[in-house]
């Protein structure tokens, strides 16, 4: 499962377990309009940390938090990108 699919499936699960069905999970969905409150988003981030082994909110130097689902997914895709171990490689 890709990172995007994992994020969306967990998003959906947390939303369903909170009994907060909301709008379709599209890239332009504003997170605060998604049906998840702060606690729901916090639970989602914890579940994703356990599955993907990354917490981009803590691990990276984010200056502005994500506003849309697309930005939220990008954050995980960037954090989950495998790092090249070759010497001299900037990636």
């Amino acid at each position: 499962m890709s990172i995007k699919e994992t994020v969306i499936s967990q998003f959906d699960e947390v939303r369903r377990s909170s009994n907060k069905p909301g709008r379709p999970l599209t890239d332009d969905l504003v997170l605060l309009d998604s049906g998840l409150d702060s606690l729901g988003l916090a639970i989602l981030v914890t579940k994703l940390e356990d599955i993907l082994d990354v917490d981009p909110f803590t691990d990276s130097d984010i200056t502005v938090p994500p506003v849309t689902l697309g930005e939220f997914i990008q954050l995980y895709e960037r954090a989950g990108k495998p790092h090249c171990v070759h010497q001299g490689c900037a990636d």
């Binding site: 916090a42 914890t46 909110f57 803590t58």
Partner: peptide, 9 residues
């Protein structure tokens, strides 16, 4: 459990 959104869970 430390959390970046709510501080803890």
């Amino acid at each position: 459990r430390r959390n970046p959104i709510t501080g803890s869970l």
